[in-house]
Design a protein around this nucleic acid. Structure first.
Length: 388
DNA sequence: TATGCGTGGTT
DNA sequence: TAACCAAGCAT
């Protein structure tokens, strides 16, 4: 469509490429995945970097490569172990898709990645951006890679408030340097994350400032235009912290969430949504808590048999957690199994729920909020607070 | 095209 | 405190 929106002729394109590559050669930051040409490692880094900051990714990337150095080692690992190495990074479907893709590659292509962007895009978890990034960085293909940085830089260069994905892709395709496509794409992103930042961009240090329409117009702070967001709903959840044993050596009852959706495949204490929080009236709240806990016990197939003192469960420290699209106020309640009674996970549910030693909980992947709940429990038990 | 999907840092 | 946002993908 609007070819006219792209003001660059051949000479300017060559100059833009040279300026960006010179900037990259001079100012690029050190990153562990820039020390390798292994397509697998570059792929993993790109997936980890989706919606995630470089500094956050680095330690995860190092641990990942120590444990899963090849497609094969990843393909042969269990879902739990894969998710454990992703624990805390968020967007857990990335880990599940990476695992699934590794198994496909190992099964059909002897563990080798395809080299074209179109083929890469067929793999789960690889979209337009990641396909272009891996194809250009690992395989030297002249493919565009439009991430949030590139989108912002292009919107400013052309002073376009809301460029479409198609426009961005066309502009980036025209710009990418066929001689050094991987370096060019990384240079574009590096510029966005170091110089052409969202607020207060450092235009005086910009290597391509002479081509920037927004800078000339003084509109760089307004490009691109912000997206509208829906407010996050606030949810209250009652959490059943079922404990077997008296001290830090106790076990807790955990179950695995369904493979899809929020925190898919992660483990947690059983919980259910409440209608209202504790502010809505103490007696009402207490009754609701008892009903929720009893319902959870029924769900996991135990009833109240063997469970102590459900009439007055012990409230633990509440935990607030913000997810990408909701805010949850967790109210954990500690329920102890009466000594001498044996409470078993329901038959046929093996692998779906289990007792886990509190001190060994790193063996299962836990969401951040669940880890906070269990850490609080551990501290209380260590302090002897449960012996009152 | 719009929405769901984590977490942590910055302002 | 709350809003914003970061090397996006799937549906």
């Amino acid at each position: 469509m609007s070819e006219a929106a792209q003001p660059w002729d051949g000479a300017r394109i060559r100059d833009l490429r040279a300026s960006l590559l010179a900037f990259f050669d001079e100012h690029q930051r050190e990153m562990p995945w820039r020390e390798t040409s292994d397509p697998y490692r570059i792929w993993v880094s790109e997936v980890m970097l989706q919606q995630t900051r470089v500094e956050t990714v680095v330690p995860y990337y190092r641990r990942w490569m120590e444990r899963f150095p090849t497609v094969r080692t990843l393909a042969e690992a269990s879902t739990d172990e894969v998710l454990r190495h992703w624990q805390g990074l968020g967007y857990y479907s990335r880990a599940r898709n990476l695992h699934k893709a590794a198994r496909e590659l190992q099964a059909h292509y002897d563990g080798a990645l395809p080299t074209s962007a179109a083929e890469l895009k067929q793999l789960p978890g690889i979209g337009d951006y990641t396909a272009g990034a891996v194809a250009s960085i690992a395989f030297g293909k002249a493919e565009p890679a439009v991430d949030g940085n590139v989108r912002r830089v292009l919107a400013r260069l052309l002073d376009e408030p809301s460029p479409t994905a198609g426009e961005l892709r066309r502009w980036a395709s025209a710009l990418v340097d066929p001689e050094r496509p991987g370096d060019f794409n990384q240079a574009f992103m590096e510029l966005g994350s170091v110089v052409c930042v969202p607020r207060s961009p450092r235009c005086r240090s910009c290597p391509v400032g002479e081509y920037c329409r927004a800078r000339r117009a003084g509109t760089q702070e307004e490009r691109p235009a912000p997206k509208t967001r829906k407010p996050n709903p606030r949810i209250v959840e009652v959490v059943l912290v079922l404990r077997r044993g008296e001290d830090r050596n106790c076990e807790v009852f955990l179950r695995r969430r369904p493979a899809d959706g929020l925190l898919g495949g992660m483990w947690e204490c059983p919980s259910r949504e409440a209608n209202e929080g504790p502010d809505s009236g103490s007696e009402l709240w207490k009754a609701q808590v008892r009903r929720a806990l009893q319902g959870l016990l029924n769900e996991i197939g135990t009833g109240s048999d063997g469970v102590d003192d459900l009439g007055d469960p012990r409230a633990l420290t509440s935990v607030d957690h913000t997810f990408s699209h909701r805010r949850v106020h967790y109210h954990p309640f500690e329920v102890a199994v009466r000594p001498g009674r044996i409470l078993r996970p329901p038959e046929g549910s093996e692998g779906y729920c289990r007792w886990v030693p509190l001190r060994d909980r790193t063996r299962v992947p836990l969401p951040v909020a669940q880890e906070a709940i269990l850490r609080d429990l551990e501290l209380r038990l260590a302090a002897g607070a449960s012996l009152s």
